[in-house]
């Protein structure tokens, strides 16, 4: 265990909730709340899993996802997208860009945990 999860999300309450449940499940959770500097944060230490919000200040989650897939070091890191826009085209776009999972807010904690576990053990 002890795998590292990077949560990129701008809503403080959501950051707190997700961090809480993942920590309790034994994950090492890092958080980052700005889109523009998100790639730098990733490059500082490539995590085992990235949870990425779509609507971020400075830079959209899709752009960041595109960058992650383009970089050799991060291309294989599984990415779980979170979004408050639950429309079908958002999901399609995320999968097309290479997201491993797509989750619409609001989500249940069980769902999040299950997805994180599934992705990390692959």
């Amino acid at each position: 265990m002890g795998q590292r999860v990077l949560l990129i999300e701008d809503e403080p309450n959501i950051i707190e909730a997700v961090s809480y449940i993942l920590s309790k499940d034994g994950w090492t959770v890092h958080t980052h709340s700005d889109g523009e500097t998100a790639m730098e944060k990733v490059m500082q230490g490539v995590p085992d899993l990235i949870i990425l919000d779509v609507m971020l200040p400075g830079r959209s989650g899709y752009d960041i996802l595109r960058d992650l897939k383009a970089q050799e070091t991060t291309a294989d890191v599984p990415v779980m997208m979170l979004t408050a826009r639950g429309q079908a085209k958002d999901r399609e776009m995320a999968i097309d860009l290479g997201a491993t999972r797509f989750m619409t807010k609001p989500f249940s904690n069980a769902e999040v945990l299950e997805s994180v576990r599934a992705l990390a053990t692959r």
């Binding site: 309450n13 959501i14 909730a17 997700v18 449940i21 619409t104 807010k105 609001p106």
Partner: peptide, 11 residues
């Protein structure tokens, strides 16, 4: 709407 709901649900 979803953002506060997400927090509420999660907590």
């Amino acid at each position: 709407l979803r953002t506060p709901m997400t927090s509420i649900r999660s907590f």
